[in-house]
Structure formats: C-alpha cells, structure tokens
C-alpha cells in the first residue's frame, strides 16, 4: 500500500511537471510565431506573380447579345431558385 502511495505521489509530480512543461513549451512556440515569423512575413512577403487577365474573363464582362453578365447571373439564380421551390413543392406533394 505504501508502495502504491509512493507511486501515486510520483505520478502526481510527473503530471504537474509534464503539464507545466507542455504549456510552457507550446507557449514559447506562440511567442516564436508572433515575434519571429510574423516579422519575417512582413520583411519577406510572398512574391505576387503578375498574371495577365485571362481572355475568358474578358469575355464574361462583355455583353452577350446585348445582355449584361450581371443580368445573366440574376436570371440564372432566379431560375435556380424557382426550380428548387418547384421541386420542393413537388416532393412535398409526393410525400403527401
């Protein structure tokens, strides 16, 4: 029994020391990230690769048959919504 008690004390010490160390170590890592890495990121930012605007993009901004792309997008979303509602109604009717 005494041996068991001693083991418990050792386990308790290990737990306390272990948790304190884990928190300290990972806490230091937080400081490292906040102090060193973020400064490095400001000093050496990623190179922004300049890309020419894609042709397809130009096309989408052009009017198709006199209708602007915004109009096309609005009509598409309206049709999708209508179909969704319509389908839902159908499925409700089916379950009924």
């Amino acid at each position: 029994m005494e041996h068991l008690n001693q083991l418990f004390v050792e386990a308790g010490t290990l737990m306390l020391a272990g948790m304190i160390f884990v928190f300290t170590f990972l806490g230091l890592m937080i400081i490292f990230i906040n102090v060193v890495l973020t400064r490095l990121a400001v000093k050496f930012p990623d190179k922004v690769i300049q890309t020419k605007p894609a042709r397809s993009k130009q096309k989408t901004t052009q009017k198709i048959d006199g209708i602007s792309p915004q109009m096309v997008a609005a009509i598409t979303s309206a049709v999708t919504q209508y179909r969704k509602q319509h389908n839902q109604n159908l499925s409700i009717n089916k379950t009924k």
């Binding site: 990230i33 060193v36 890495l37 973020t38 490095l40 990121a41 050496f44 930012p45 990623d46």
Partner: peptide, 8 residues
C-alpha cells in the same frame, strides 16, 4: 507567407 512555413 512561405517564409513562415519554412522557418517554423
């Protein structure tokens, strides 16, 4: 940034 991931 890439540099952060390399130095980490």
């Amino acid at each position: 940034a890439k540099i952060e991931k390399v130095v980490f």
